[in-house]
Each structure stands twice: as structure tokens, then as C-alpha cells.
Design a protein around this nucleic acid. Sequence first.
DNA 1: ATGGTAGCGCTGCTA
Length: 268
Amino acid sequence: MRIATWNVNSLKARLGKIEEWLEIAEPDVLCMQETKMADAAFPALAFHGLGYESVHHGNGRWNGVAILSRVGLEDAHPGFSGEELSDIEECRFLSARCGGVRVASVYVPNGRSVGSEHYEAKLEWLERLRLDLAEHADPSDQIALCGDFNIAPEDRDVFDPAAFVGATHVSEPEREALRRIEEWGLEDGFRRVYPGADRLYSWWDYRAGDFHKHRGMRIDLLLLSAALADKVTYALIDREARKGMGSDKPPSDHAPVFVDVAIGPASA
DNA sequence: ATGGTAGCGCTGCTA
């Protein structure tokens, strides 16, 4: 099973590229973030035409998450377990069961600047995610948290650690919050395939030509429970899709990332 | 050089 994640930075602006990428990469499951779309505008028919069931959780603001699946999509749940839909101001978490895997599309708050109220809210959101797992999930199940975590797990995941001193995405409290989630029973699927690699990024700032200068960060992660992590056969950050894929319109500032896991009918 | 680009949507916010 191929499980992918992609912060698309506006689903409306990127729909053509996403359709193109689905046909090229053929993921079984794709988690998207930053759709910037309301549920009523979600193009479920376009994805259905490519063989994907889908679910979306968005309110038209700058957030919004979705899951596509061609291996079944059941028991979709917007927000954390027990969270009332009417209480959700920012749509950043959506889970569903796809082909026997509990999949979540995750869009961690940016945090803006260390010490700001937005940064504190980011840490609180991460702790809430951890508690949600601890209370409502079992680490022995097949679980994949896929998304834009807005955290580079280690210094080797950023192009120049010195340039990020004091910045968000690399601060110790953020990394500690991520580690605590992993300690519950999840593992960075990318590192199963590339344990020693550095300078492999998933996001590049649009500005100052950062993509072409290879000045990026690896912040888009696939966190897998052991039942999946032990069966990873391949992983890729699709840098080609960050180039724009033949269209005149700009690409997303994130590249899609995927892992292949040898489970279920797709791998038989 | 305290810069730069993109999306949304129409003014400035968010990333």
C-alpha cells in the first residue's frame, strides 16, 4: 500500500496538478493539507473519476484537510475523538479507516514565532494530539499519521541549522512534543528507508529562490505504528512535483511524500 | 538587503 501526504497550498489552485500526480504516483491513500476550501466546494467527483473515495474537513479558511483512498474509506472522523464539530475553528485533523489502516491527515499549526501565543497554541495542539492517541488509539494497530507537522525532527532536516536558531520548526519544545507522540508508538517512516540521509527536504520557501538553492526543511512526515513501519519497502519525497509539473501556475511550496508498506491486497 | 512569493480576495493576513 502506498500512503502519501501533500500540503497542496490551496486545493482549488492545485487541482490539476493533484490529478496529474495521482496518475503518475498512483498512491492508494493521499492525505492533503491546506486545502483552503469549504466542504461544499470539495471536488469529490473529480477524485471519484480517478478511482478515489474522499473525505474533506474544511471551513474555507487557510487550513483544511482531506483524505483520498482507492482501498476503501470508512469511519471518517473530522477533528479529534470526542471533539464537537461546532467547536472546531481551524480544520487540522481528519481520520478515516482505509484498507485496514487508521489514517489521519494532520496539519499542525505553524506557530509563527517562538514564545508567541501561536507558538504556545502549537505546543498545546501537539499535546492534545498525543492525548487523543493515548486515550482512543492502540499502538499495536495499523496507524499512519500523515501530514505537515511544521517541525523538522532533527538539525539534519534543515538546510542550515545556524540560520534557524531561535526560530520555530526546530525549537526543542516542538521537537520534544513530536518525540513524545512518537514514543507513544509511531515512527518516522521516511527514516526507515533513509536512516543516514540528510539534505532531503519536503518544503521550500517560495521566496528568494530557495527551492533552486536547495534551502528547505523536512517537515512533512508519515508517522507509522510498528505494524506498518516494520513493513516499509520504499519511501520518496517527490521533488519533481515541487517544480510545477508542466503547468504555468506555481507549484505548492511543499513536495508530496509517500511510503510503500507491504500490507494488504495491494502488496500481495 | 530585517528582503523575498503565493493564495485568498480586495485589505491585510497567513504561511
